[in-house]
Structure formats: structure tokens, C-alpha cells
Design a protein around this nucleic acid. Structure first.
Length: 422
RNA sequence: GCGUCAUUGGUGAAGUGGUUAACACGCCAGAUUGUGGCUCUGGUAUGCAUCGGUUCGAUUCCGAUAUGGCGCCCCA
């Protein structure tokens, strides 16, 4: 075993990939500001119970995918497998529910003990948006529109929202009982997984990919037939508001989501991406009106979504939609060792004036320094020799046109700023 | 967790049961001067994921382990 090898299913982030992560993060931050959502962060690990009770201990995530450990104080801890339950815990502990509404976004690593694949890691980053404290279908539409907006801003085509409702508690229980009744007599026709689901979470049988073609699944009762009036009206309003935001969606009664806390609206977003394998769902979310109270807080309805960064970057790379070139404004070169100090001073002067710049710190000749300038993709090269140091008039070379200019020291900043996009 | 395929330098890779592991890119040095990118010359893996086994001899064959890809389950 090689200690230099990173743990299974984890990633080192550097160079181009790092720039891609920051590019997405910056965009999210901007959009979060526009929608007035506040930055949120929770600890990387929580007491295991937070996720067991929050996410639901019949879900696969908690049943077989959590990263659990016992700390030195003998406490059961779990590395955060998803954001929502952790944020909810924090909302309750800090009594943020007194604020009425809390609109928050996060960007945090998540951990799931799984067999890795591309777009599926043991440590992956997810960002998400959560809106607490409103029962209005407006906010469901807002949350969905944020997700759609982000994907469209990134340039993805064919962004498609698949939406469904699970109804309120009453509707959901009615439906659940009806499903149990329905499947009871057909139990032996189902796959082994579904037999297990029958006891724990019969809704998930509907979503089974293995049994999807069986007539019993196709003819199974539909949630839409078991919604009470308030649930039906709620769903209609969500759709109405999506229409008024011009968001394209498709109602898909099969979406039930793998997390137990959802009520009413659930949705998944896909996009058209070349050669994308089984990980084409890049965003998932929904409403979870009972989660805050089930973790010991007050009645505090909420809705939110999560998106996986690595999967998103995969998609953008396949569609060639993500910039990753590096660039600086100026690279300072010196002809001989004598001018090194002068170069360092000029460099500092540039940086104090918000010019993105650098110089060579090892003892390379001019040729080597030019190479460094190219490596850093510098727009300009400033050359300092004996003459420049004496006269304070510097040679500035545009690295794409190769034109050279003689510029007085006090005019350098203006020159670089004005000619930045030349 | 199941199935399946893979793993050769910084990167892309060729290749073989037996002397120095091809080629290309990249990188470094020099020709090269106060101006590079072109060209030329030279240098760049005591090493073929790891550990065992078979063998006179293994990077090549076999096994285990590790990691990665794809499919399934599930999910972001």
C-alpha cells in the first residue's frame, strides 16, 4: 500500500480543475446574492443521529453509505453525507427560526461510502440552496428557478425539470397504505430489493429501475389519485408559478427521491450532455415541511435543492462550457542580477495597484524568464535593464502583438489598465 | 455492495519470458547576443501500481491486494 496514494474515491484539486471549481463557485455566489440567500456552513461531521433521524434510516444513504466513526470521547459521529439535515440541525440549535424566513446557500464537502465512478465519489462537493419558513408555493418555484438559472448561466442546453408531488402527510400516508394493499398480493413478482422496500418504504418500489417494465408497476396506483384538496391545490400553484417564470418542466409521477424527508414538491433536473452515463441527474431537491419538527424544532416548512460540483464540471467539460485558462496582466523580467531588486520593487508597485503580476524568483536568464511569462500566460512583459533602472522609463512588451512601448514609471499603471483589453 | 475491464516516465503512449524499455509532447541545459516562441545539439523511468508465486531469468505468465473506468444498486 502506497502512502502517497490518496484515499479511494477522493480527489486532489489543483491547476485547471481548481480554476473550474472557483469559476462555478463565483457564479453561484453572484446568483445567491441576487436572490438574497445567505452563506451557510456546518461542521464536516455531526452526531450520527442527526443524519439517521434527519435523512431517514431506511434510506440507502444512511443504511449503507455513511462514513461513521467513534471519536475519542466514545461518541458516534458521521461525516456529513448531505447538506439539508446538517443545515436544519443548525437552524434549530441557533434558533434561527425566530427570524421568520431564512434563505441560505452552502458549498461543502459531502461523504458517502460507495464504490466510486466518475461523477460519484466518496468525498464530493455539493452546493445547495434552502429556504425556510414559508409555506408558499412561490418559494418552491423560486428554488427551482435558482437551480435552472445556475445551469442556464453556465451555458447548459436542454435543462429539464422533472417534477412531482408527494402530497402532505395525510395524502402520503393514504397513498402509502394503498400501495401496500396493492403490492401485498403481488409480492413474489417483485425483485428482492422491492420486497425489502415493501416493508420500509413502499413508495420507492414505483421508482425501481429493475422492475420498471412489469405490469404491476405500470398499473400501480398513482400518487395523483390520492392527493387531498390542499395537496392538489398546492401542486397546481407550484406549476402555475413555474409557468409564470417560463420554466419548462415535466410532471413525472415516478420521482419519489431517495431521502425520506420530502413532502409536496420533489424535483430532479437533467440536461442534454454528450456521452453522459448513469449520473445524468445533476440536481435534486424538494420540499421538506416536517424535517425541522422531526429533529426537535418547531413547525418550520422548508424547500431546497443540492447539486454536485464534480458531476456539474463533468457535464460542462463534455459540453466544452467551462473556462480554465490562466492569465496574468504583467510579468516583470530583469536583464541581469543587478536589476533584480528594481524588478521586485516594480512588481510590488503593480500589485499595490491591483495589477495581477509576477516575476521569476530563481536565477534564470532572460530566455528562461520569457518562458515563465508564457507559462503564466501574461498579457504584458516588463523588461528592466541598466538603462531602465537609471531613467525610470521601462520597456513594456505586449505578449500577443509583440509591440514594445517605452513607458515612464508613473504611467505604467494607467498603460496596463487602459490597454488591458487591447 | 455486485459484475466487468484496466494500471508502463510530468503527459499521451509503443513494446518484449532474456543485453542499454521505442516514439511524441512537456520540462531542463546549451548553440544565442538586452528579447524567448522556429531550428539544431544534449539531458531527462536502476524502471513497467504493490506484494507474493511459477521460472535459470518476469515489466511480460499466475494469484492476492490497491487504485481507476464502465454497467448495476443508489445518488450529487
Amino acid at each position: 500500500m502506497n502512502i502517497i496514494q490518496r484515499p479511494k474515491g477522493t480527489n486532489d484539486v489543483y491547476d485547471a480543475y481548481g480554476r473550474k471549481v472557483l469559476y462555478i463557485r463565483n457564479l453561484i455566489e453572484k446568483i445567491a446574492n441576487n436572490y438574497n440567500y445567505n452563506y451557510f456552513r456546518t461542521p464536516t461531521f455531526e452526531r450520527t443521529e442527526v443524519f439517521k433521524r434527519g435523512v431517514g434510516d431506511t434510506t440507502d444513504i444512511v443504511e449503507k453509505e455513511t462514513y461513521d466513526f467513534i471519536d475519542r470521547g466514545n461518541r458516534n459521529m458521521t461525516l456529513r453525507p448531505e447538506g439539508t439535515a446538517a443545515v436544519v440541525r443548525s437552524i434549530i440549535e441557533n434558533k434561527l427560526y425566530v427570524n421568520g424566513m431564512n434563505k441560505v446557500w452552502y458549498f461543502m464537502p459531502m461523504f458517502r461510502y460507495e464504490r466510486p465512478q466518475s461523477g460519484r465519489l466518496r468525498e464530493h462537493f455539493q452546493f445547495g440552496f434552502e429556504a425556510f419558513g414559508s409555506n408558499s408555493p412561490l418559494i418552491d418555484a423560486e428554488i427551482i428557478s435558482i437551480a435552472v438559472n445556475i445551469l442556464k448561466n453556465l451555458g447548459l442546453k436542454g435543462v429539464k425539470v422533472n417534477i412531482n408531488t408527494l402530497g402532505d402527510t395525510e395524502s402520503r400516508n393514504n397513498y402509502r397504505n394503498e400501495l401496500k394493499k396493492y403490492f401485498e398480493s403481488h409480492l413474489n413478482e417483485l425483485c428482492d430489493d422491492c420486497k425489502e422496500r415493501f416493508n420500509r418504504n413502499p413508495l420507492r418500489i414505483i421508482d425501481c429501475k429493475y422492475d420498471a417494465n412489469l405490469d404491476i408497476i405500470k398499473n400501480a396506483p398513482k400518487i395523483t389519485d390520492y392527493l387531498n384538496d390542499t395537496s392538489k391545490e398546492y401542486f397546481d400553484n407550484v406549476k402555475k408559478y413555474l409557468d409564470c417564470l417560463n420554466i419548462e418542466y415535466e410532471v413525472n409521477p415516478k420521482i419519489v427521491r431517495g431521502l425520506d424527508y420530502y413532502t409536496h414538491t420533489v424535483f430532479e433536473i437533467t440536461a442534454t450532455i454528450k456521452d453522459f452515463g448513469s449520473q445524468n441527474v445533476i440536481c435534486g431537491g424538494g420540499r421538506y415541511n416536517n424535517l425541522v419538527s422531526s429533529l426537535g424544532g418547531p413547525d418550520y416548512p422548508s424547500v431546497g435543492f443540492g447539486m454536485g460540483i464534480e458531476r456539474l464540471i463533468n457535464a460542462l467539460e463534455k459540453e466544452e462550457l467551462i473556462p480554465c485558462d490562466k492569465q496574468i496582466d504583467a510579468y516583470v523580467c530583469y536583464i541581469s542580477e543587478n536589476e533584480k531588486k528594481c524588478a521586485f520593487e516594480i512588481l510590488n508597485y503593480l500589485r499595490e495597484n491591483n495589477i495581477k503580476s509576477d516575476m521569476c524568483y530563481s536565477n534564470r536568464n532572460l530566455k528562461g524568464q520569457f518562458k515563465e511569462a508564457d507559462y503564466n500566460n501574461s498579457k504584458y512583459i516588463i523588461i528592466i535593464g541598466e538603462e531602465e533602472e537609471e531613467t525610470n522609463i521601462f520597456t513594456i512588451k505586449n505578449n500577443s502583438t509583440k509591440n514594445e512601448y517605452k513607458i515612464n514609471k508613473k504611467d505604467i499603471i494607467n498603460f496596463l489598465k487602459e490597454n488591458k483589453y487591447e
